[in-house]
């Protein structure tokens, strides 16, 4: 464990708790893409299947359990409890356009052709594009609530910090996982224009609004 990965994990945890809190407090999931949340749920379930089979550390197990629980709770709030506030007209990104190619790629490009490894690879690839429906929804509505932009900033920062973690681990531990690194770079690049808008607008107290 290194500081970059720890801060990254905490940023990730902050992001998902921020989103859950926003929906619960405002009793509304307006501006939130349910499709992205479903895909994140899929990411955690397929990646943390080893939650009960191999124990790595208390921290690892606890975080995995929290990520899965919060993802399921968020999906529940969006599609059941506050379903009336779910903006399905703007959350129109076709998930199958992401899940099918990612599933195929996981079969073709992986470290080990075993079920667990292919599911882990699928999870890594899916996570890199899971935010697209959310970014697409913001581009359609033309704006995002400030709390939602904080959620996106924390979520985007987590994988950016993981990239620094991988550089650190490469130089100090000689460890690197090309699949995770390439997917992590793609994932972070997708946030770039959002990061630019966040820094230039939200940081100056303005509302995040895309140029119409």
């Amino acid at each position: 464990m290194n500081i970059f990965r720890l801060v990254g994990d905490l940023s990730h945890l902050l992001a998902i708790l921020l989103l859950l809190w926003k929906i619960w407090k405002t009793r509304s999931c307006a501006g939130v893409s349910g499709k992205s949340q479903i895909m994140f749920g899929l990411v955690y379930i397929t990646r943390y299947l080893d939650l009960f089979t191999n124990f790595i550390s208390i921290y690892n197990t606890t975080m995995k359990a929290i990520f899965i629980a919060v993802a399921i709770a968020t999906i529940y709030l969006i599609y059941f409890k506050f379903k009336a506030t779910y903006d399905s007209n703007h959350d129109t990104f076709r998930m199958e356009f992401l899940i099918v190619p990612v599933g195929g790629l996981a079969f073709l490009v992986n470290h080990d052709f075993t079920a667990l490894e292919i599911l882990w690879t699928f999870s890594i690839y899916l996570e890199s594009v899971a935010i697209l429906p959310q970014l697409f929804m913001i581009s359609k509505t033309g704006e995002a609530e400030t709390i939602t932009s904080h959620y996106l900033f924390a979520l985007g920062s987590y994988r950016a910090l993981y990239i620094v973690n991988w550089v650190y681990r490469y130089y100090f531990e000689g460890f690197f996982d090309l699949i995770a690194i390439v997917a992590g770079c793609v994932q972070t690049i997708l946030y770039c224009d959002f990061f630019y808008l966040y820094v230039t607008k939200v940081m100056h107290g303005k509302k995040l609004s895309l140029p119409a």
Partner: peptide, 10 residues
């Protein structure tokens, strides 16, 4: 590959 070691990241 030592599966467990490599998969210590979240």
């Amino acid at each position: 590959k030592d599966y467990i070691k490599d998969k210590d990241e979240l």
